[in-house]
Design a protein around this nucleic acid. Structure first.
Lengths: 331, 331
DNA sequence: TTGTATGCGTTATCAC
DNA sequence: GTGATAACGCATACAA
């Protein structure tokens, strides 16, 4: 590996001690202008810059935040990641992107993140059960954790979420006002689905309106293909007369797959034959081809809040924010 | 910050020296079964696990790879990131996701990555000019770099790319065979666009076929909205009789935005009135609503190669791989 | 303001 | 096989 200049070398070149070099690179340290100038000169000549690794070890602060993601099929992850990384970097932090999958589960990821001494862990759209924390390999050695964009379900771990109850109430109110009475709900991967509580609130609000029956569709993942498969299974097993008149999907990418299949494979019109609703407000849902009615999560505010918790400006307590209903032509 | 157990503490508890503890956690170190057992026992009791930060400092190896990304609008980034992180983690590496933007340019990012002692930098879909490396703050202190999914343009920095010449030849051959003769090309953000060379080869191959005129459309970014704006500008400034009969877009997300606008805003049929081609094979392009003809990059192979270079199994030399033409209904 | 000693938790190298 | 010493590069506390 290449050799980098060290504070000691700069010190020798500048004719001072290495501690003076450190001071020159420390904000607000007591050092004379003259010393600083000479140090900086030598530093530039030797192309020196402080070793953040050594600093992290000494200060017990890495300024690294692990971000766990287990679902890369949902394009909505991208704008969240963009804003999150940007905000982290603005605070001098950096994101370690951890892919949670069958070869690298939460226990491995947490153990690894902890060994790397990350300052915090953001569970972005993913989480695990309380028991996972009791895994023998983990002990109590977990860094501060925060759940983003889903419920926590982990004791003592706060979450920053969009208010699902309010969101689903707005959606169902809208659907009911439009005259739909035979709703169906398509959920995605089961683990996440229950945590989002979208289905639960969907059922509740319909019930309040006197509609007790909600058809249940389930996709295996959160991808367009999974949405296609789920709507196919439903259509093949349901007689036309028994079909729902509005389908709510747990997120936009499922909804786009479903809507596409309804029109392309079954020749249905949306919304005349069946209305479709999504969740997330993914850019393409707004395209002419879809005109998907959806619900937008308050991304920027959510990330504001989680940043405030990470940096300690705000207490680590679950925060629920309100989003916005986006009505388009699919309903 | 919480206190973690150290090797010294485990050593005291186990009645050995701290070096024996280290050995117990070192693969293939010479240590007796008995010692190892006692150490492991104490380690479990104290919930000890090695501090990777200290290890990195001592070994001058962080097992961290910085991944630079400057375009989060293209959903195609997601599957690449998924595979890349998965492959990195399989090798014991981890990705530092760096968002390159106006507040955090390449120089800042490189400096930061270098200070954090990353083992390598992957420029994913982004790069900079040779001169950037000569920035005074940088010097020659840059870690090994690799460019993924675009040309390098940086001296000594290898790239792993999809063969643009071959790709565009296949595409134009296909379009020509279908009878199109008035092509247009929509490019995205200029910096990246020239590096991809898609436009260049598009023009060349048409020229070979005797078509010298290719209309030029340019989007400001790689997003559906930018595609919408670009096709609008073209349509508003071009008389119907002068219009192209086929539009090639630099990537799928631009193509989807453009196709959507052609149909929704201008009532054109695709491909009858104007055919559309994209690049990337983004999942939704294959939806019934679009049926976008496109070109698939060999994602897995590209990442295989870049992993081999990062780990040193393969020399750091530019590699060009072939992708696959996907013909659908939009042409 | 500046220099000294010590510590952060590990690894490498050498005696024993 | 095990323990000891030095080193990784910087930070903190204290002395000068």
């Amino acid at each position: 590996m290449r050799k980098r200049a060290t504070a000691k070398e700069v010190a020798d070149a500048a004719g001072v001690s290495k501690w003076t070099v450190i001071r020159a690179f420390t904000e607000g340290a007591s050092i004379t202008e003259e010393s600083k100038r000479r140090v900086m000169e030598a530093a530039t000549a030797l192309n020196y810059s402080p070793n953040l690794l050594a600093r992290s070890l000494a200060k017990n602060l890495t300024h690294q935040i692990a971000v766990f993601v287990d679902d890369f099929a949902n394009p909505q992850k991208l704008p969240f990641l963009e804003t999150l990384t940007e905000r982290l970097q603005a605070e001098g932090l950096v994101a370690m992107l951890i892919n949670i999958n069958t070869n690298f589960d939460h226990v491995h990821a947490l153990l690894n993140a902890d060994q790397r001494q990350v300052d915090a862990v953001v569970l972005f759209g993913t989480a695990f059960r309380n028991e996972t924390l009791n895994d023998s390999r983990l002990g109590r050695g977990a860094p501060p954790m925060f759940v983003l964009a889903r419920d926590s379900q982990i004791e003592g771990v706060p979450a920053v979420v969009c208010d699902a109850e309010r969101a689903l109430r707005e959606i169902v109110d809208h659907l009911h006002a439009r005259g739909y009475r035979r709703p169906g709900f398509m959920s995605g991967a089961s683990a996440l689905s229950t945590a989002l509580k979208r289905r639960q609130h969907f059922l509740e609000v319909w019930k309040e309106k006197g509609v007790d029956t909600v058809a249940s569709l389930s996709a295996e993942r959160y991808s367009a293909q999974a949405g296609v498969a789920a709507i196919r299974a439903y259509m093949e097993s349901t007689a036309p007369a028994d079909r729902i008149d509005v389908l709510m999907c747990e997120n936009d990418i499922l909804a786009l797959g479903a809507m596409d299949t309804l029109r392309g494979t079954y020749g249905l019109r949306v919304p005349e034959d069946m209305a479709v609703v999504g969740f997330d407000n993914y850019e393409l849902g707004g395209a002419f081809a879809y005109g998907l009615t959806t619900y937008e999560q308050p991304k920027d505010e959510m990330i504001d809040v989680i940043m405030a918790m990470i940096t300690g400006r705000q207490p680590a307590e679950t925060v629920t924010l309100s989003g916005k209903l986006i009505v388009r032509t699919s309903t």
